[in-house]
Write a protein that binds this DNA or RNA. Structure first.
Length: 425
RNA sequence: GGAGAGGUGGCCGAGUGGUCGAAGGCACCAGAUUGCUAAUCUGGCGUACUGGGCAACCGGUACCGAGGGUUCGAAUCCCUCCCUCUCCGCCA
């Protein structure tokens, strides 16, 4: 959510920034009109209520007969107020709804652009491996090894589901545990095991509601939403709270399954494990003081990249232009791994500085000093990393001519010393 | 799922229709004071919106789990819901 005061004071600036991210600047005019009506009504109501309180207190001192004589007129005043309150509530809801639809504004240093084609590769490492055979796509590798069963996944749940079996399941678990260990032991994150379902206030706080309602699974009986990412529970961990400056920065990490309907991507990436309805992810979230967030984004990217480096898989970091920031991000970097089988760069992490956008929605604040005014924190999030795509890159980069897959060195201790996954007899 | 108890400011805790945003205590902050860690005194000490000073301030309104209702007036009465605790039932 944006700051309504900023919109009131610098509407032209806000419009200009919204245009950069591809939003409709006209929404601001409508919003200002609503907001003006809301404020005028609120002011009139405040005066009426003050008047009622004054008169009510007067009545308290009068005799029953005197009271009776003024009751009708008091009632009229009360009715006027009640009607105004209903109008105000409706207006407030309209303003709120309009505010919730506005995306975040970009940081000043983000390159202006209209879409993917304007993104910039800012760094990369490792040359793509030269194969002396035709590298296979991961679904072929996995099927030959018998570590991913696509047919039975469909049988159990439906399309976009798969089953990992034997060394595949173990490799998934090894990746999760290893990534968490790096986050916790080396990068200063606190491990969290959050609920996988949250209530609607939390999904609103993270910015997934109302706009991305259709992309999430939910329980129809109760107010439960399956998390599309651990960003939701982690960012909301301190929702509604006022933190002390000494508590910041807060670094959180969690491994969780994530659930997505993928309705908007119907028909895309249907092969393999690139885009499932359920997938594993190790997530990182930072809660920081506003002046730190730009710097913290850089280190968040470093934290994600470190996983790629240790796996020794070719990767690149892409800086998103204003047109590709998405709804909540004010600045964003994607980390992509090269998949030689699929012949594409796979987004394994997306690191965002959400500035105070989520903090406003979720009311996460902090005090610089004991009796200082509360200020909104800045929140950041990034994958560290997404499992399926990391696994794709791993299988495709570490495949051998005979169909076996070498296990990266860093993972061997987590695989009971296994060095190669070979086809099952 | 059933029965009972309860949800008040950072915490504890009063308040059962009328100057209650809410006593008191603790904690915290500022100052004063006592020549030791510490004690004592005074003052301050919620959030949001809003009007004015357009700054350190002064005023208005809202908020006592949430939402409705009764009333001239509700933290206080009524209804619904949510949550916590205790007991019972059920269950992985």
């Amino acid at each position: 959510m944006l700051d309504i005061k900023l919109i009131r004071e610098k509407p032209d600036f806000v419009k200009q920034e919204l245009a950069k991210v591809g939003a409709q600047p006209e929404a601001i005019d409508h919003l200002l009109e609503l907001d003006g009506r809301r404020r005028r009504l609120q002011h009139r109501l405040d005066e009426l209520r003050a008047e009622r309180t004054r008169q009510s207190r007067e009545l308290a001192r009068l005799s029953e007969q005197e009271r009776e004589s003024r009751r009708a007129q008091m009632r009229e005043l009360s009715d006027t107020i009640a009607q105004g309150e209903r109008e105000l509530a409706a207006l407030e809801q309209e303003v709120e709804a309009a505010m919730l639809e506005l995306p975040n504004l970009p940081r000043p240093y983000v390159p202006v652009g209209s879409g993917e084609q304007d993104n910039r590769v800012v760094r990369s490492e490792f040359e793509p491996r030269k194969f002396d055979f035709e590298p296979r796509p991961h679904w072929e590798i996995a099927q030959r090894l018998g570590i991913i069963d696509f047919e039975r996944g469909v049988k159990l749940a439906g399309t976009r589901f798969y089953v990992m079996i034997g060394a595949g399941a173990k490799l998934e678990r090894a990746l999760i545990t290893w990534m968490l260990d790096v986050k916790i032991k080396e990068q200063g994150y606190v491990e969290v095991w959050p609920p996988l379902m949250v209530n609607s206030a939390m999904v609103l706080g993270s910015g997934h509601l109302p706009k991305f309602r259709d992309t999430m699974y939910r329980d129809v009986e109760d107010d439960f939403w399956f998390i599309p990412t651990a960003e939701v529970p982690l960012t909301n961990l301190y929702a509604g709270e006022i933190l002390e400056a000494s508590q910041l920065p807060i670094y959180l990490t969690a491994y969780t399954p994530c659930f997505r309907r993928e309705k908007m991507s119907a028909g895309r990436d249907v092969r393999g494990i690139k885009r499932g309805h359920q997938f594993d992810k190790v997530e990182m979230v930072k809660v920081v003081a506003p002046e730190e967030s730009d710097r913290e984004l850089e280190s968040l990217v470093d934290n994600a990249v470190e996983i790629c480096r240790r796996l020794r898989i070719p990767y690149r970091v892409v800086q998103m232009c204003t047109g590709d920031l998405g709804f909540t991000a004010a600045a964003k970097y994607d980390v992509e791994m090269w998949a030689p089988g699929c012949q594409e760069w796979l987004e394994v992490s997306s690191c965002s500085n959400c500035t105070d956008f989520q903090a406003r929605r979720a009311q996460i604040r902090f005090r610089r000093e004991k009796n200082a005014k509360p200020e909104f924190v800045h929140t950041l999030n990034g994958s560290g990393l997404g499992l399926p795509r990391t696994l794709i890159a791993l299988l495709e980069n570490y495949q051998n001519a005979d169909g076996s897959v070498t296990i990266p060195e860093v993972l061997r201790p987590y695989m009971d010393g296994m060095t190669v996954i070979r086809p099952r007899a």
